[in-house]
Every structure is written in structure tokens, then in C-alpha cells.
Amino acid sequence: MNIFRLAGDMTHLFSVLVLLLKIHTIKSCAGVSLKTQELYALVFAARYLDIFTNYISLYNTVMKLIFLGSSFSIVWYMRYHKIVRRSYDKDQDTFRHYFLILPCLLLALLINEKFTFKEVMWTFSLYLEAVAILPQLVLLQRTRNIDNLTGQYVFLLGAYRALYILNWVYRYFTEPHFVHWITWVSGLVQTLLYADFFYYYFQSWKNNQKLHLPA
């Protein structure tokens, strides 16, 4: 494992911790898209089908369990926790996420490395992860006062994707036969979706102003 991959995983882990911190201690999920969180839960469920059959390392298994557990518990908090769910901006979070799931599934059935159930589900999870942030970005645009934790959560998620790209570049030059077009293209698409957000995030940081995305 190289430094970019480790940094990427840690950034991903921090993003989840920031979100759980907000939900668990402040008992608020204001500005957080349940649609995006449900998509992430689906992404991890589809991708980690091999969790008990394909052992890679203890690190890998533990991280998979953390991402599965955290994504499903965030969804549970936002849907069912009697205090947290009151702060959910239901009327603003209107992105129809079902419209993302079906095209991703069709694309995974058409474009994959191997036509097996696990491989198609794995590919589906990559395509879905690439677009899963969209409901969250739409909600951020509609939110007048984006609080710091929500802004940091999205920033950390974007940073995780950027670090994964550096990891792929590194692996491409250091490992023989390391070519994963599906992973790379969907990962690149995913990272590009954050470009706009990054621009405004750094502007607000530079000018010491509250983060605000123009509609």
C-alpha cells in the first residue's frame, strides 16, 4: 500500500467520523442529504459482497466493516432517531436518487470486466459511487448557511477521491499490469463532480467567509 492510498482511506474515514460526530453529538443532520447517504450504503453493500470470501488483509476487512457499519448507521439515524430526524431538510433533499440507481445497474450489466454476479455488483458500486454525491451537492446549493462540519465532510470526501487518483498513478508506474479502466474512468468522473465545490470551498477559506454555493 502506498502513501496516497493510505492518505485517501484515512481522509475517507475522517469524512465519515466528521459526519457521525455531527449526528451523534450535535444530534443534527441539517444540510446532510439522506439520498446520498442511502446511495453510499447501497454502494458499500454491493461492493463488499466479497467481505467474507475474498481475504486481502486485516486492514481491508476492518475498513470494509467500518464503512458498511457507518453508512448504514448514518441512514438509520437520519430516518429513525427521534431527535436527529427532525433536523433533516426533507423538503430540500428532493433529488430522485432512484433515477441514478437504474442507469448505473444497466451500465454495469453492459460494461464490466467479467459477467459474474459479484463482478457486476462490484462494477455497479463503482458507477453508483461516482454519482452518489450529486444529491448532497444539490442540497448544499439550496442550503443558505452551510455549517462547518457539513462543508468539511464534503471537502474530505472530495480529497479522498483526489488521493485515490494519485494512488492509481503511482500504482500504474510501480506495478506491472496495473490497468483498471472502469475504476479509473468512474473515479475520475466522481472527482470532477467535486471541482465546483472545491473552488467555492477554497474561496470561502481564503476570504475567511462562510461557505456558500451559488445556485
Binding site: D9, R47, I56, M63, K64, F67, K114, N167, F178
Partner: peptide, 10 residues
Amino acid sequence: ADIITEHDEL
């Protein structure tokens, strides 16, 4: 192992 389908990333 099969290089194409080995998924060692998260």
C-alpha cells in the same frame, strides 16, 4: 491471482 478482477482497494 487474476490481476483483472482482484479488488484490493476499498
